[in-house]
Write a protein that binds this DNA or RNA. Sequence first.
DNA 1: GTCTATACGGCGATAGAC
DNA 2: GTCTATCGCCGTATAGAC
Lengths: 216, 216
Amino acid sequence: MTGETKKQEKRDSILDAAEALFARHGYDGVTLRAIAKQAGVDVALANYHFGPKRDLFDAVLMRRAQILNSWRLQALEDVIAKAAPGAPTVEEIIRSYFEPVLKRSQVEQEGWKSYYALIAYVNNSPEWGGKLMTQFFDPLIQRFIEALRMALPAVPDKNLYWGYHCLSGALTLAFAQTGRIDHLSNGLCRSDDLSDACDYIVDFITAGFSQMDEAQ
Amino acid sequence: MTGETKKQEKRDSILDAAEALFARHGYDGVTLRAIAKQAGVDVALANYHFGPKRDLFDAVLMRRAQILNSWRLQALEDVIAKAAPGAPTVEEIIRSYFEPVLKRSQVEQEGWKSYYALIAYVNNSPEWGGKLMTQFFDPLIQRFIEALRMALPAVPDKNLYWGYHCLSGALTLAFAQTGRIDHLSNGLCRSDDLSDACDYIVDFITAGFSQMDEAQ
DNA sequence: GTCTATACGGCGATAGAC
DNA sequence: GTCTATCGCCGTATAGAC
């Protein structure tokens, strides 16, 4: 039915506009009027579909979270299954975490880039970082840490968790695509080329975890 | 003169309040009225001393930037001088970057903790990250990269810059103190214990850079 | 000069009429 | 589903108190 698809189109265009604007300006830097204008709909429609502003924000976060989690979970389970009954290598595990989100072709789309920048915003927000990231991504992360524990059985959990902290900081800063590294490196590195960044970051993070084993 | 000190006290209390609130809620999440209330002064006083809201934000960033840069520059130059005419080790360089900001006793004060969270906010903001971080911290970072180049002469610059990206992401996420790692690790790690975090992060980041040399 | 009290024009989210 | 009205708070300018 065209009525159904039309409705869905408008819903999606609100989510798209909200995603792009929240990513760039943060939650409080965006008005529902700006979202409605960019989406080409009436100012009250967002409220009709999603309730108050805060719920729209959650809807934006939720929309791609499941897709993202399923990409990564698939890659992680593949790596674990392939190595069974042994343990996968650290590098394989790290790759399974980064490549599904940084190398996939969809990631060139504006929507995904905005979504990633939004994750960077949330992850580094003292107000929401603790709660929202836990809510949307915890089960996957726990499984990811389990895999690392298999690969590095002699390493204390505390090291693994701080290692994950470093990984998460590096990834979300890449997600933010601030242009900072472009300036710093005089154009040698480009913060919008996530696929290129991936290789360097994977090597760096892999070494960070591998050293924990050697330090025992 | 008491007039002078009184003036300075009010100026400072505005900066303190702005720092704490901007750090927690971001630029757009804070009103001048909220800042004035927390500072115990009239709404119009911030505007009188600092001009428009945007300039107050810059004043907050600027206040501690010079102190922070001088701490780190001192530590870095000490390490370089001590090793001359040879090159310092990677670990020494990384320590000179982290320890002055994470191990110093002042850092336990609320003001510094807020300032760090604010840096995390700015560094990960697509809107400001590129410009403001460059403006306040570039000379030090360039010197820091130079030192790494001395320690790792065979490593291409591109690897060094992406390494710095990982380091910066890990540090600023620690700065944000979101409580995320507390949940994730079931209390094993505490995001507000920066001094403890420092040791784990330094080892991790040092390994990330050292691997670049071995990979040649 | 330093600071407070107040006023103003504009825009915020959202509820209720349609 | 859409449009409009409402009410409150926004940043800032200004007038005058100390």
